Simulated scan of single mutants.
Amino acid sequence: MRVLARVLLGFGVFLVVAGVIALTWAPGVVKKTPLDVDTLTVYTGEAAKIDPATGDFDRRPVYALTDTKADSEASSSDHVLFVTTQCAVFDTGGEKVCVDGEDPDLITANIDVFATDRTTALSVDDKNLPADAVPHEGLVNKFPFDVQKKAYPFWDGTLGRAVDIEYQDTETVDGLETYRFSYTVADEPIEVAEGVDGTYDNVITVNVDPRTGSIVKSGQDQQRYLADGTQALDITVVTDDDTIKTAVDEAKANGSSLTLLLTIVPVVGLVGGALCLIAGGLLLARRRERPGARVAERSQDRVPA
């Protein structure tokens, strides 16, 4: 009985400590953007781009790729640096890859380097960013953990500034409950091409896992116009089904891990630990109430000569 009491007390202390750690220390550790991000997002849709030589503006199938990688060596415990390669290409039926700048099927392409806070997901000015990196503001490639139903500043690379993206409603995507956010810009002055002024319209929509802040689906409906009103670009794309499934599966797995670490472990630790401590204490108290117990145990253990 004495051994059992000590085991219960020791195990109870262990569980309580684990529960306290899960409540106080774990959230600040697990609710951070990881440093091993390496994702490829594939979009499909249709687009039309003006041909300067002929004036043709035919709408054709298109795909877009966003390849995002974290630079773990340049990142830190507080910030994570990302390198994102993006392109939009007319789909001629071949492999979906970013083509070079001489390819007539290329619509747009760019490389973006930025840093975000690992907790808030907001853009930051990090000392390890290259000197020519474009300053960012707002959210870029994910939302913070525990997303709220409110507006967030969201980076628009074409405008070069953040735009408020508003919560719209709750929507189920592949069995995952998500928050849908969107923003609209219209008649915004931009450079339609290098040295060519014009205007820009766009409707951006993203579906976000509210637990982890990961974007599982997104799309845009973008138009660009020359200064005289001639439409130069019309592109509508949305995340393809395979990318959505992968993102949803990852969000579900990460959400389950958070539930285990931040909910189940604290409950089991604190409640189970308390029960073990109470049971161990009762066994010791019961033993003290039996003054002859130790003598009896020693008598039973005595071996005859």
Score class of each variant (00 low, 15 high):
84 T>I: 14
84 T>H: 15
85 T>N: 13
86 Q>C: 00
86 Q>M: 04
88 A>R: 03
89 V>M: 01
90 F>M: 00
91 D>R: 00
93 G>I: 09
96 K>V: 04
96 K>Y: 06
97 V>T: 10
97 V>D: 09
97 V>Y: 10
98 C>S: 09
98 C>Y: 04
100 D>S: 13
102 E>C: 14
103 D>W: 00
107 I>D: 01
108 T>K: 00
108 T>V: 02
108 T>P: 03
109 A>D: 02
110 N>A: 11
111 I>N: 03
112 D>M: 09
114 F>R: 07
115 A>N: 09
115 A>E: 04
116 T>D: 07
117 D>H: 05
117 D>G: 10
118 R>G: 10
120 T>F: 09
120 T>L: 12
121 A>E: 13
123 S>Y: 10
125 D>Y: 07
126 D>E: 12
127 K>I: 13
128 N>T: 05
128 N>C: 01
132 D>S: 11
134 V>M: 13
134 V>L: 12
134 V>G: 06
136 H>I: 02
136 H>L: 02
138 G>W: 02
138 G>A: 09
138 G>M: 04
139 L>I: 03
141 N>G: 13
141 N>T: 10
141 N>C: 14
141 N>Q: 08
143 F>S: 09
144 P>T: 15
144 P>H: 12
146 D>Q: 10
147 V>F: 10
147 V>Q: 05
149 K>F: 06
150 K>N: 02
151 A>N: 13
151 A>W: 13
154 F>A: 02
155 W>M: 07
158 T>Y: 00
158 T>F: 00
161 R>N: 09
163 V>F: 03
165 I>W: 06
165 I>T: 09
166 E>D: 15
168 Q>V: 15
169 D>R: 14
174 D>H: 11
174 D>C: 12
175 G>W: 04
